[in-house]
């Protein structure tokens, strides 16, 4: 298991705090939406970064008003077949203008890396013996995209419009 950000294997500064654990006094934490609701005031008193973990049936709309306090939203793929998180990521970026980290967690299948990256994810928890190598192989799969997704990459149609040829 490793965390990939900006194409690099990085140490995860965040600690995942489960609902039965107590929140440590110091250090960045990721909590569930239930914990956030219950301990919101306590968490905000801490000076460290806060992230929220959303399950695939938890719509980011519920935390839309709190995004300003959050540095990270982890979107869970309970199975790689459950594609809701792609839409959640798009909504977080486009509709709620969230600029923090959107982390892919759970059943993160690297064959879908491009879909995630283009939908707004920028951090990936990768289950592999050599996460960086696996990531690099997957990242090399595509260089052409048909869709605009607001991730800054130009679509084929836009490149054509600019007269750019491959």
């Amino acid at each position: 298991m490793g965390l990939i950000k900006e194409g690099k294997l990085v140490n995860d500064p965040f600690k995942n705090v489960s609902d039965c654990e107590t929140v440590p006094a110091k250090g960045p934490v990721i909590v569930s939406i239930d914990q956030w609701m219950v301990r919101r005031d306590d968490l905000l008193k801490r000076s460290d970064l806060i992230g929220i973990w959303l399950k695939s049936d938890e719509h980011p709309e519920t935390i839309a008003g709190d995004l300003a306090y959050l540095s990270l939203v982890a979107l869970e793929f309970p199975s790689f077949r459950d594609g809701r998180a792609y839409s959640y990521a798009r909504l977080l970026r486009d509709k709620y203008v969230f600029s923090g980290e959107i982390r892919a967690v759970g059943d993160v299948l690297l064959d879908q890396l491009h879909f995630m990256a283009r939908s707004g994810f920028d951090a990936f928890e990768v289950e592999s013996e050599d996460p960086l190598d696996a990531y690099n192989i997957a990242a090399a799969d595509y260089s052409v995209w048909y869709q605009q997704t607001g991730d800054g990459r130009l679509s084929a149609a836009e490149l054509r419009g600019k007269g750019i040829r491959r």
């Binding site: 594609g83 792609y86 048909y146």
Partner: peptide
Amino acid sequence: RQYTVLHPEFSFLP
């Protein structure tokens, strides 16, 4: 066709 081929958001619909 171009819009839907390998659409990042809609490749794992229900």
